Simulated assay, not measured.
Amino acid sequence: MGTLSLSDFKEVQIPAPWGHIAGRWYGNRQERPILGIHGWLDNLGTFDRLIPLLPDYIGLLCIDLPGHGRSSSIQPGMHYSVYDYVYVIPRVMRELGWSKVSLMGHSLGGFMSFVYTSLAAHTVDMVISFEILLPRTVIPKKAVDVVAQSMERHLVEEDRQGESNPQKTPSYTLSEMTKIIVKRTINSVTPELAKHLLHRQVVKSPLSPDRFFFSGDGRVKFYHLSQMEPGLAVEMTKIIKKVPFLLIKASKSSFVGVQCEVPISMLRQNNPHFELHEVAGTTHHIHLLFPEECARYVVPFIQRHRPPSSWSLAGKEQPLCSKKIQNSKL
Rank of each mutant, 00 (worst) to 15 (best):
M1G: 09
T3S: 14
T3R: 15
L4Q: 08
S5I: 02
K10W: 05
I14V: 12
I14N: 04
P17A: 09
A22M: 04
R24D: 11
E31D: 14
I34R: 08
H38L: 05
L41W: 01
N43K: 01
L44D: 04
D48I: 01
D48P: 02
R49L: 13
R49F: 00
L50C: 00
L50V: 02
I51V: 13
I51A: 00
D56T: 06
D56R: 05
G59M: 11
L60S: 05
I63F: 06
D64C: 01
L65P: 02
P66C: 00
P66H: 04
P66T: 04
G67V: 06
G67T: 06
H68Y: 12
S73Y: 13
G77I: 07
G77P: 08
H79Y: 12
S81D: 15
D84W: 07
Y87R: 12
R91H: 15
R91C: 03
M93H: 04
G97F: 00
S107H: 09
F111S: 02
F114P: 07
V115C: 04
V115P: 01
Y116N: 08
S118H: 04
A120I: 03
T123P: 02
V127D: 11
V127I: 13
S129M: 14
S129D: 14
F130R: 05
E131C: 11
I132T: 15
T137I: 07
V138T: 11
V138L: 10
K141G: 00
A143L: 08
A143K: 09
V144S: 13
V144F: 11
V147A: 15
Q149R: 09
S150N: 15
H154S: 11
D159K: 08
G162R: 08
K168I: 03
T169L: 09
S171G: 00
Y172L: 03
L174M: 15
L174Q: 14
I181C: 04
V182A: 10
V182I: 05
V182F: 10
R184Q: 14
V203I: 11
P206W: 09
P206D: 09
L207R: 03
R211Y: 03
F212Y: 15
F212L: 01
F213S: 01
F213V: 02
F213I: 03
F214P: 00
G216C: 03
G216D: 12
G218T: 02
R219K: 12
V220S: 08
K221N: 12
E229M: 06
P230A: 05
A233H: 04
E235C: 04
T237Y: 07
K238P: 03
K238T: 05
K238Y: 03
F245W: 11
L247T: 10
I248K: 01
A250G: 11
S253K: 03
G257Q: 00
P263H: 11
I264T: 07
I264P: 10
S265H: 12
R268D: 06
Q269L: 08
E275F: 10
H277Q: 14
H277Y: 12
A280L: 12
G281F: 08
T282F: 12
T283P: 00
I286V: 15
L288Y: 08
L289V: 11
E293N: 06
A295Q: 02
A295F: 01
R296V: 08
R296P: 00
R296H: 13
R296M: 07
Q303E: 15
H305D: 09
R306C: 10
S310D: 14
S310G: 05
G315I: 07
L320C: 11
L320I: 13
S328P: 07
K329D: 13
